[in-house]
Each structure stands twice: as structure tokens, then as C-alpha cells.
Computed example of a mutant assay.
Amino acid sequence: MSRIVYTEDPSELTRYIETWYHSRHREQLSWLADLAAKVERVHAGHPEAPAGLCEALRRMIGEIEVHMKKEELILFPAIRNGGGADISEPIAVMRSDHEKHATDVEEIRRLTRGPSLPEGACRTWATLYEGIEEFIADLEEHLHLENDVLFPRFEAQQT
């Protein structure tokens, strides 16, 4: 179920992104990394175990945290102050980060085969993959709001 909120007010949109997506990603990734570690440990001998998933999620925790801090401390305050001539560089950096996040999601999909559970998977494994699907959907909504709704409003100021 999509929770995307469209608003004409960029300040309101940045606050929504922070309070909904940023806080969710912080919760989701830590929890998912812990679940992945458990599944990888318990099912280490299973040919379809998501070997390397915990490591990929932990790496993503650091990358996304740095990204969100840049938004919270630099880009979003600039947007709330109306943008201006200096906003194009931070937006370009965020778009580049978003491309990296999309690559990370593809790696997660590869490690989890979709995500697709093997026959007879335990409840923890199923919970992990359900959480992965939810995280990916949330991240894709987050990136869409920024890339396709928020950023173009300020990139248009530059032309």
C-alpha cells in the first residue's frame, strides 16, 4: 500500500520524508540486518540461503545514514529556505546516492532471489523476506518522491 503524499509545499514534503521514510529506514535496516544474520547462521548449509545479505544490509545502513544526514542537515534546510543558486550541487549528490541505493537494492534482490523463499522456509526466513519487500517498496517510494516530485521543482530554478 502506497503512502506517498503529494503536496505543493516543498517544506511540508521534506518534513514528511524525514518523519516517515528516514525514520522507517533507520528502523527497518537494523532489524533486517539482525534477521539476515540469524537466517544466514541457522541455514548456512542451505543452497538458497541468502549468504552475504547481512553484510549488504549493514553496508547499506551506513550509506543510507550518511545520505539521510546530508538531506537533513544540508539539502532539506536549503529547500525550506527556498532553494537558490547553490542547490543544484547538493541535489546532484543526492541523485548520485540514489543511483547507488538502487544498485544496492538490485544486490539484495540477487541475494534473495527476488526475494523468493525456498520451499519449507522457516518463519524467520519468511519474516526477513517480507521485511525486505517492505523496505524496498518504502525506499522506492522515497526515491520517487525526491527524484520525481521534489528535486525537479528546484532544478527548474537553475535554468
Rank of each mutant, 00 (worst) to 15 (best):
A37N: 07
T112L: 00
H67M: 13
G62M: 06
S2F: 08
K38P: 00
T112M: 00
E141V: 02
E55C: 09
C54L: 06
S96N: 13
L35R: 00
V66C: 09
P47C: 02
E99A: 14
T14S: 15
G82S: 13
I108D: 06
A56M: 15
G82P: 12
R109N: 05
L75T: 10
D34Y: 02
G82D: 10
R95N: 15
I64P: 11
L13M: 14
E40W: 11
W31D: 12
L139D: 10
P77G: 10
K100H: 09
H98P: 07
V66Y: 12
E130K: 00
E65A: 15
A137V: 08
E99I: 02
E89T: 12
Y129Q: 03
H101Q: 15
Q157K: 02
S23W: 08
P115S: 00
P118W: 00
I17C: 15
E63H: 11
V39G: 11
R80E: 04
E55W: 04
P10C: 14
T103A: 15
L150R: 02
S96E: 15
E155M: 12
D86F: 06
D138S: 05
R41W: 10
V39Q: 04
E99L: 12
I79G: 07
L139H: 09
D148S: 03
K38C: 06
E134S: 05
I61E: 14
T127A: 14
A78E: 06
